[in-house]
């Protein structure tokens, strides 16, 4: 689904923030991307969701070499990826429902086409009674769930989450991780960037990518099963 080969990345003329990154993400799997703050996790995610271009190396997304893509081909590719941003990045002047519906709206769907799905999804993440609330009135956990709902509303093949438990308390964090496991069960590939050791220890990911100072230090198969989180 996603393949990196000797990828390097720098911002402008600065030093490389990612160096010689090679890995692949399998379809339908749950992956973790770990590493300390500043290791380059967000930069790596940006490369995957096509917000940045690599300065060297090759990235293949859904079987296509991204360097060979025309600019007008990128939106279609991005729609196959859902992103939960670290800082949520909700639009404060839109309601919860409008925020979540945004990916469907940019696909050209009308409200009649997406409204029922959005309401159902919001009920599923426990926000069925907050449809018309604006993000500034939501708690951190609620914002996080809105961001997750927005990321999955268009049924992406790959879901990326950047520190999804970083802004919420452990209880909410656990619920959010269970949400990801459930989405993964339903067929979505999931890549979660986190440096939360509890999540890493408790979550059974098929692959753990560990970043350190811009390099992919290890690639481990996870040994644990996610039973603890399901309980």
């Amino acid at each position: 689904m996603v393949r990196f080969e000797n990828v390097g990345m720098r911002y402008g003329l600065g030093p490389e923030v990612l160096r010689d990154i090679s890995f692949s993400l399998e379809r339908g799997a749950l992956h973790l991307l770990t590493g300390p703050s500043g290791a380059g996790k967000t930069s790596l995610l940006k490369l995957i969701y096509l917000a940045e271009r690599p300065s060297r190396g090759m990235i293949s997304m859904f079987g296509r070499d991204t360097s060979a893509l025309q600019r007008d081909e990128l939106p279609a590719l991005r729609r196959r990826i859902g992103v939960v941003f670290q800082d949520f990045r909700l639009l404060d002047h839109l309601t919860v429902l409008e925020n979540v519906a945004l990916p469907r709206r940019v696909m050209g769907e009308t409200e009649a086409q997406y409204r029922a799905d959005v309401e159902e999804l919001l009920a599923w993440v426990g926000l069925g009674n907050r449809l018309n609330a604006k993000p500034p009135t939501l708690s951190g956990g609620e914002k996080q769930r809105v961001a997750i709902a927005r990321a999955v509303v268009a049924k992406p093949e790959l879901l990326l989450a950047d520190e999804p438990t970083g802004n919420v308390d452990p209880d909410i964090g656990g619920r959010i991780m269970r949400l990801f496991i459930e989405l993964n069960r339903l067929g979505t590939s999931v890549l979660i960037a986190t440096h939360d050791q509890r999540i890493i220890e408790r979550l059974a990911a098929t692959k753990i990518l560990k970043l350190s100072e811009g390099r992919l230090a290890t690639t481990n198969q996870a040994a644990h099963q996610p039973e603890a989180l399901r309980a």
């Binding site: 096509l50 991005r78 940019v106 927005r150």
Partner: peptide, 16 residues
Amino acid sequence: REIVEVVHMIGARDVF
């Protein structure tokens, strides 16, 4: 810019 970036990243075409 943030709104534009978010909408851009979730797959909006430029014309949208």
